[in-house]
């Protein structure tokens, strides 16, 4: 069912289950948000999406208000603009404002809003949250001084990951997202929380000084671990994969596990093989490609001549691409001449 309503003097219609925010977005009307995430239940905490609705005594959050037939909504009155500006101003009054050195700079919603509302000066100053204790977990940098309490991390952890590793503790100005008893994080480290954080409060420990978003190139590819087939976005800087994320509109809906998101370091491992090796006098020694391939050909061909092709076997790999596997079995069958081809589907 569809309902008709007016937003900013524009007559629109939207599904009866839509919120004002959804209806506005579908119709190309921009409403700023910080705590909204279409994949999570509406929260209504940041108060940036305030709108005025005819008949209601005070502004309401667009993200939590269901639309109604005939509703008249104003999203950008002077009053609303001022309220939003004050919200951002207040957030900045309790923020390190260290964009110069923040990993999120250039990719940060709060920074964007500060720019949008031209907050050169802040009328408010006073105490800022300061936390001396750092979370000792190996994956996630949790810089809670930059947290704006949008609670997206808490919500994604509960609603999507089913883990509930974190919640807000304390009240009011002291409110803080943390694991129970403020221990170090001890969870699945899927990093879903990192992926939804609008500011620099959550990032990967390994991201540090490896290149901010603007400096990196992105390459979309597919995860090399389990069979889920998650789409990965590799961020590359100086021929190094420095960060991994995923787009929301993918088979994995943007969610990744600890391996997909954080286990990319092996690509640059110093242990990587970087030259062919041939065993000489019982030891594996570096050799040229040409020498190596000749060596293989000689050995394999003589075995084939002496014992027949079925004395040769080949194992292809669940780790390699379709094309590589196709070529491998083609090599075994068409070149070596045996059907002794298998792989590890059984293990």
């Amino acid at each position: 069912m569809v309902l008709n309503l007016t937003i900013d003097n524009k007559e629109i219609s939207a599904s009866k289950d839509a919120t004002v925010l959804e209806a506005a977005r579908e119709n190309g009307i921009y409403i700023p948000t910080l705590c909204d995430n279409p994949k999570l239940k509406p929260y209504g905490g940041c108060r940036l999406c305030l709108v005025e609705i005819k008949g209601l005594p005070r502004p309401v959050g667009a993200c939590t208000t269901p639309i109604q037939e005939g509703m008249v909504v104003q999203t950008s009155t002077e009053r609303i603009h001022k309220l939003r500006r004050t919200v951002v101003e207040l957030l900045l009054s309790d923020h390190p404002n260290d964009c110069m050195v923040c990993v999120k700079a250039g990719d940060c919603l709060l920074q964007e809003l500060a720019y949008l509302y031209d907050l050169q000066n802040n009328r408010f100053y006073g105490e800022k949250r300061q936390y001396t204790q750092k979370d000792g977990n190996p994956f996630l940098e949790r810089d809670m001084e930059k947290c704006i309490l949008c609670r997206q991390c808490v919500r994604v952890c509960e609603e999507i990951a089913g883990v509930s590793a974190i919640e807000i503790a304390y009240r009011g100005f002291k409110a803080k997202v943390c694991p129970s008893f403020e221990d170090d994080l001890n969870c699945e480290f899927c990093g879903q929380c990192v992926s939804v954080c609008p500011t620099g409060a959550l990032s990967g420990k390994a991201w540090s000084r490896k290149g901010r978003t603007a400096k990196t190139n992105e390459v979309t590819t597919t995860c090399p671990f389990c069979g889920c087939g998650c789409s990965l976005k590799l961020r590359v800087s100086e021929n190094e994969v420095v960060r991994v994320s995923s787009d929301p509109d993918t088979i994995n809906e943007g969610w990744l596990c600890v391996k997909g998101r954080f286990a990319y370091e092996f690509i640059n491992s110093p242990d990587r093989l970087d030259a062919p090796l041939i065993r000489k006098n019982g030891k594996l020694e570096k050799a040229s490609w040409d020498e190596t391939l000749d060596y293989i050909y000689d050995k394999m061909d003589s075995i084939k001549q002496e014992h027949g092709p079925d004395a040769i076997g080949g194992l292809l790999s669940a780790r390699c691409t379709n094309e590589e596997n196709y070529l491998f079995q083609k090599f075994m069958r068409a070149v070596v001449g045996t059907n002794n081809v298998d792989h590890c589907a059984r293990l």
Partner: peptide
């Protein structure tokens, strides 16, 4: 004989995941 190959991030091709979904692998580095 040991032949040095490349990781998923260093090549082009396709993987087929658990629900028969053919997806691209793209070279990044």
């Amino acid at each position: 004989v040991v032949l040095p190959a490349v990781t998923f991030a260093e090549k082009n091709g396709t993987f087929t995941n658990t629900d028969r979904r053919v997806q691209r692998v793209r070279k990044a580095v």
